[in-house]
Design a protein around this nucleic acid. Structure first.
Lengths: 204, 204
DNA sequence: CCTACTTTTGACCAATTGGTTAAACTGTTT
DNA sequence: AAACAGTTTAACCAATTGGTCAAAAGTAGG
């Protein structure tokens, strides 16, 4: 079957492209470098994906869906807010720690081409409104204090994403550039963020 | 006096370089584009700054110092923690709102060349330890609850920086891509963040 | 006005880069 | 075994890009 070979190469290319694009960005990445990383000829890149732009788009879509957490599970379950939050925070930090440079990469490329973003969001199934609704309900139930639910969601995302996105800076400033010490800090932070948020919003 | 003209051109170049580098990043920026933006000949760029790399370094240093907030004022004053916090948050949000793409730019380029960062931090006079100390004192005084002061500082920075760095995404997700609506939100957020943090750390 | 200097420019260059093409290779079908 | 399809490659190309250089333009002092 020829498809086996085809799929294999295509995957290899996409995987290599992810590595290189995340490392160098769209402009910094070289087609030759991606080819080398994939262990194939450069012309083959153009055979599967016509141009650098198209390869980048395919890569970006795949990466973008990665940083979109399974927010929905947080909405659907009928666990108390504490449990939902804990699940979401731990889960998301784990995902990001596997790709610490993903957030910055996404933000940078988004800012370079904001129009491309619209289609992505629609096709990604991202529905932040659902989460906002959930928070609204909690406020009406009286479990958390009154506030703009969008603020709450954005604050939670901030507390999770930023410390990972700024890893090199924080690592140097606070952790003596020691990866282990930084990683431990982030691991502990799962609980810290949960506490920080709950202390702030819960009506005791 | 020849220096007047010289300084003038050098400033024009640096200013143009900031604009273009922030917009396109190191790799995406073109020397020709910077020259156009500055209204001068391309060769003149190399006359003042030998290479693209050196022009970038000069630009980056100047930009990096911008996002380093006057943390120190927060440490020195003997105001109560609420006031210090309010001052810091409002001040920093104002600075960042003038350059919403600065944080992402810095993070991206840092991640591309982490070694360059070390020298910068030393020469920038950035001393986060001082802030950490201050928080430690507040904890010992019993005004805020016990926690890792580094966590607190990082959380505050997260709440301030991330919502601005992710402007294009948030603007699309929550504010119907309407700049005014987004700006109002950030303006309100000054108070929100302060509340959010105080609720979380203050011992009532 | 002339000389010495710095500043600015247009023309040019070598290297890099995304992309193309025609040929070679592989596996499948008849 | 030959014809056919999709896959892979090496060689090549046109355009871009950072950088150079010699000459021109501007400036100041004698």
């Amino acid at each position: 079957m020829t498809n086996i070979k085809k799929d294999n190469t295509e995957e290899k290319i996409l995987s290599a492209a992810q590595t290189v694009f995340i490392r160098k960005g769209m402009d910094g990445a070289r087609m030759q470098e991606i080819a080398d990383e994939a262990g194939i000829n450069k012309a083959l890149l153009h055979y599967y994906f016509r141009s650098k732009q198209q390869l980048f788009n395919a890569t970006f879509e795949s990466l973008f869906s990665k940083i979109i957490p399974n927010v929905m599970r947080m909405v659907q379950s009928d666990q108390p807010i504490e449990v939902k939050l804990e699940f979401f925070i731990e889960n998301y930090i784990d995902v990001l720690m596997k790709n610490p440079f993903l957030p910055t990469f996404i933000l940078k490329e988004i800012h370079q081409d904001p129009e491309f973003l619209e289609g992505l969001i629609r096709s990604s199934g991202l529905e932040p409104q659902k989460v906002v609704e959930m928070f609204k309900n909690e406020i009406e139930k009286g479990t958390i204090r009154t506030m703009d639910p969008r603020d709450l969601l954005i604050s939670i995302l901030s507390l999770i994403i930023f410390p990972i996105a700024s890893k090199p800076l924080l690592s140097l400033l606070f952790f003596d550039d020691d990866p282990k010490s930084y990683n431990e800090f982030i691991e502990k932070r799962k609980a810290t963020v949960k506490e920080f948020v709950l202390y702030s919003i819960l009506i005791k």
